[in-house]
Nucleic acid binder design. Structure first.
Lengths: 225, 225
DNA sequence: CCAACAATTAACAAAAGCTTAACACCCTAG
DNA sequence: CTAGGGTGTTAAGCTTTTGTTAATTGTTGG
């Protein structure tokens, strides 16, 4: 289980601290930088998923950093948000022009910032054609990854395939027989309890409440409270 | 027993209140939202069965929200209705295009809205090929559930199969012999009273009046008296 | 009305079926 | 070659489901 990494770049320690605190509380892993150079260096080093850039920074401003990052393939589809004081003369247009995903003016309202980040993440996932959206989960076949809010859950192959099968049949019972056929194939012989054990491991990782047991029949993926 | 959940999204508090009142009086559990973001968040959180979306809303309009929801497996077959003022320039086509089930223009006539919702629910059930419709029940093999109005009843395997057998022979007597053959198979030996006990358990869960005893012969599923 | 038979019902017992932890045997990347 | 992740197996509990029994309560034909 791996947290989503956020890199926050601002030269004011107060802002840095406030944002760090809020984001960490929300389950993100936070990295900070104080100027343009440091931002680039840390971005390369830690490969964050989300980058918050203050515009006014020593050694290359936020716009420049944004433009530079966007030229790197690795950051082509990461989330980049520009933070700016309303008074500063940079325009919103310049921000989007440099490739930013969103543009937030200070004073920053934490709740609103968090929901905008979430919205961007949702959109990012949604645009990804190989990802299956199910309630709070985005199940990404390409990266073998389950995204759940700020959490990225990495599952090994068998567990992933099993979860994917169940999720793609949302709310329908998948029989044990079907599971064997789809995950192990007709000719492989595995003991009956193997399925249960895999279900167990998935439940531990994604939470107990999403996979329901239907005794004597199979399992189903559903979201009820 | 669980009520059917309706999420109503509109930025005008008056409309929200009027609809809430009407739907609650009709037995639904109501959740409200005031803008697009809140709608998405609450939909994810509460998993409503029916969603009413005003088109004109701050932070993502109804069409967008509808489109987003439809990409989520969990909402693929929930009921989504678009509400709109006749004057607004959005077209009906856009609504259906985004995956809405119905399109209602304001001013809203409550009685008509309620009956359209009911019609959609009925159709949803009827269109489900894996569910058997008998009287007030929908017996759903895929979900392994009995749906009785807003109530979902869970039955263990033997009871489910027995009820399914009786329901599929609606209004016809099923002999004890036939029941043994179909539910237990030719070679399993169970005592005669076992059937009675299972019938008992089903009656407790779905109500006494649906399964009739035909002395000396068997049982039949019917809705009379 | 009353045998005589059939079904209801509650209580109990047995058996399925699932959960869970522990372990063992791969592989494979370092 | 070795540690660690990924898979499969086993076996000891548990819980739920299923089956049995027996007392009781209809029901019905004579």
């Amino acid at each position: 289980m791996q947290k989503t990494k956020v890199l926050i770049a601002d030269d004011e320690p107060d802002i840095l601290e406030m944002l760090s605190y809020a984001l960490e509380k929300d389950g993100y892993e936070v990295i900070t930088a104080h100027d343009g150079d440091e931002t680039l260096k840390k971005a390369l080093k830690y490969q964050p998923d989300i980058i918050l850039l203050d515009i006014m920074m020593p050694k290359h401003d936020g716009i420049e950093v944004c433009r530079t990052l966007r030229q790197d393939k690795a950051f082509a589809d990461k989330i980049i948000m520009i933070l700016t004081a309303r008074s500063e003369e940079y325009s919103e247009v310049a921000g989007f022009d440099a490739g930013a995903d969103d543009y937030v003016t200070k004073p920053i309202k934490i709740r609103s910032l968090l929901s905008r980040i979430e919205a961007l993440q949702r959109r990012r996932q949604k645009d990804n054609p190989s990802a299956l959206q199910v309630g709070p989960f985005s199940i990404d076949r390409e990266r073998y990854l389950i995204v759940h809010g700020a959490e990225e859950i990495k599952l090994p192959r068998k567990e992933f395939e099993l979860l994917y099968l169940l999720a793609s049949m949302y709310n329908k019972v998948v029989t044990r027989e079907r599971i064997f056929d789809e995950i192990w194939g007709k000719d492989v012989i595995v003991v009956d309890r193997t399925i249960d054990v895999h279900i167990r491991r998935i439940r531990i990782k994604i939470g107990e409440q999403y996979i329901q047991t239907v005794k004597g029949v199979g399992y189903k993926f559903a979201i009820d409270e």
